[in-house]
Design a binder for these strands. Structure first.
Lengths: 181, 181
DNA sequence: TGACAAACTTACTAACTAGTAAGTAAAATC
DNA sequence: GATTTTACTTACTAGTTAGTAAGTTTGTCA
């Protein structure tokens, strides 16, 4: 599952095969089918694990009790670390690019994951604006959509044009949110 | 080339084959190899055409003579129309997701395309801020990276969660840029 | 009318894809 | 000590992939 997750983020759903994983583990192709009957089942388990992990984090006091600014920094850092790890891309973003060639169950998993990221971000933005530390007009839901989009897209652009482009995105968000208007 | 471009934006580089194009055109597989010796050559020609088209547009007086606000609207509309056309995704974004499994010449083409989009956007933001119609702190290059990232990412999120998420991104950008601080 | 070239088709290949069926070795359980 | 379960391997299959070589039709031009 670790390898599948890595491959998804590095090469996309259509970019890796059972053979890639088998070679890496030095086992045969069929050994993976023993644990996961289909590629669909394997990737579904990977997304589920990712969702569970995120849920655990945001409900843990280590994140829950942070200030809105620190929460946002924590969230940005997830993406910064993803970027630093072999230029990986957000799992949700990777799956969305190939959404049209995904089996139904994986589409649903991708939808659920994206919804969960988005709603946590929305709540955090709301909380920060209510506390007077974030400044933005419009709906928190819209600002959340903008920020998540740019993080997903930023990781992709960074692949072509380098790390500095991703850092620029994060920095600009902080500038936009924290600037006293 | 039209079909290849569509498939790239709908299913990604690894998501379509010569067979898909051949079937659509009602010709044999080998007929495409006659015109484009390799998939690499085909996709390279598609990206080059896309770059040429963008260059033509931005240098045409119909776009060149617009106000910064109108220019930005024109740019946003490219993405809105891409979204409306079968839920397609930005060509650059599609290629970046699979950047790691792309042949060298396509990586270079993708880099060049992204750089061109980014530098036009940066110049337009600069122009708008100088004219006093756009309001943002920090560097125009960073704001350009943020906007392009979010448009690419927004098209992808829209696949999972629907059109409204993409509209939210565009609306929030206008809110952020035009709000008098 | 004949030569030539453009745009194919037919018929392949070698490599890779997800997935399966049957057999095996070792460890856990009764 | 016998039985069962776990975690594989061996040996496949049917379908798809990009790509090739040789032959065919069609239109153009001298």
């Amino acid at each position: 599952m670790d390898l599948a997750e890595s491959f998804l983020q590095e090469k996309g759903f259509n970019g890796f095969s059972y053979a890639h994983i088998a070679k890496e583990l030095d086992v045969k192709n069929a050994a993976i089918h023993y644990h996961f009957p289909s590629k669909e089942a394997l990737v579904s388990a990977v997304i589920q694990r990712y969702r569970d992990r995120f849920k655990l984090w945001i409900n843990n006091s280590r994140v829950k009790d942070l200030s809105p600014q620190e929460k946002l920094d924590w969230f940005f850092n997830i993406y910064t670390n993803t970027r630093a790890d072999n230029g990986k891309v957000c799992l949700a973003g990777s799956l969305e690019t190939e959404f049209n060639s995904l089996p139904d169950s994986l589409r649903e998993q991708t939808q659920a994951l994206t919804r969960e990221l988005l709603s946590w971000l929305q709540a955090t933005l709301q909380e920060g604006r209510d506390a007077g530390v974030f400044h933005f007009g419009g709906e928190p839901a819209d600002k959340a959509a903008l920020i998540l989009s740019s993080l997903q897209g930023g990781l992709q652009i960074a692949r072509a044009l380098g790390n500095s482009k991703f850092r620029a995105v994060v920095q600009q968000h902080k500038q936009d949110l924290l600037a006293v208007t």
